[in-house]
Design a protein around this nucleic acid. Structure first.
Lengths: 159, 159
DNA sequence: TTATTTGCAAAACCTTTGCCCGCGA
DNA sequence: TCGCGGGCAAAGGTTTTGCAAATAA
């Protein structure tokens, strides 16, 4: 079903590429991020890690995420007033829609917008190193808030 | 030079429209925001307010900014890892470029991008309530960091 | 063995809040 | 006068850090 090299091997490679030691905590977190279909925050990852492993501190969650982020394996997002949320880096680059009623995150991707961003920056004498685009939305024709459930689904759209 | 109604009157109007009392602290902050050419954070506004007035607490800075934001007079931004930064709301709507080397903020405006955002959201069944677009950039051909100075200038660009 | 990592608890930060006094209307 | 608004200090939530013990290489 999955034509990938092998999840465990990929995780090991990621850690080796980062030039850090392979610890159980890092493997657990890497695994959680790989299977996460949402964008959990540090506390949520801590909860899941404890369920999967039993012993892992919140401090380690933060430290590990920082390491993985530096290695380019993890991306950190700060939606509006929330605490930081994380996801495994994956191609292609994408941006996010935040459903204001449910908190659900939807990913989308638009080459057109990316191109316009670079163009505008260039006109002002800049080169885009990275960017951040978040659309805070409501469902079309929605009657209103229906009850927030922790973001669990991710839809993807390309344009 | 300025065909505006009169700064003081406008500030009074803003407070009245917000349905709140006119206090010295609010007038001072409103004035600081009006003349600010940058995007100061709460601590910086506190510093400036003390220089201008002498007695105003950080708590009041935060409370006043919250009031003004609710009234639509002030906009709050959270660039990357920084603390919240504020600016007086002004038309047309604009987004920001953050110069990674100097920290300087440059505003720009692009109807094209706004339109694309709405279009993408619509295709996914959403309506954009508000959004956030930040381009973290480096000057084209820049040789590298030259020394961060507190953002003081604002350039504007329309497309 | 030896340099990294971890856990724990404390610290750091930014922002908000409780409480009582003072000022605006 | 009446009640909103302010100052102060303490609380809150998230993220980082110092230190000694544990562990990967």
């Amino acid at each position: 079903m999955e034509p990938q090299p092998d999840p465990k091997t990929r995780m090991l490679d990621a850690l080796r590429a980062a030039g850090v030691r392979v610890t159980n905590q890092r493997m657990v977190l890497l695994g959680l991020l790989a299977e996460a279909r949402d964008h959990p925050d540090a506390a949520e990852l801590h909860r899941r890690a404890q369920a999967a492993d039993g012993a892992i501190s919140l401090a380690t969650v933060y430290r590990t995420l920082a390491v993985l982020q530096r290695a380019g394996v993890v991306q950190r997002h700060s939606f509006d007033g929330d605490s930081a949320r994380f996801e495994q880096a994956h191609e292609p680059h994408h941006d996010h829609i935040v459903d204001l009623d449910t908190g659900r995150i939807v990913e989308f991707q638009s080459d057109k917008i990316e191109r316009l961003q670079r163009q505008i920056a260039a006109e002002l004498g800049f080169e885009v190193v990275h960017h951040r685009l978040e659309l805070y939305c409501r469902r079309t024709g929605a009657s209103g808030p229906t009850g927030r459930n922790p973001a669990t689904d991710v839809a993807t759209h390309s344009s």
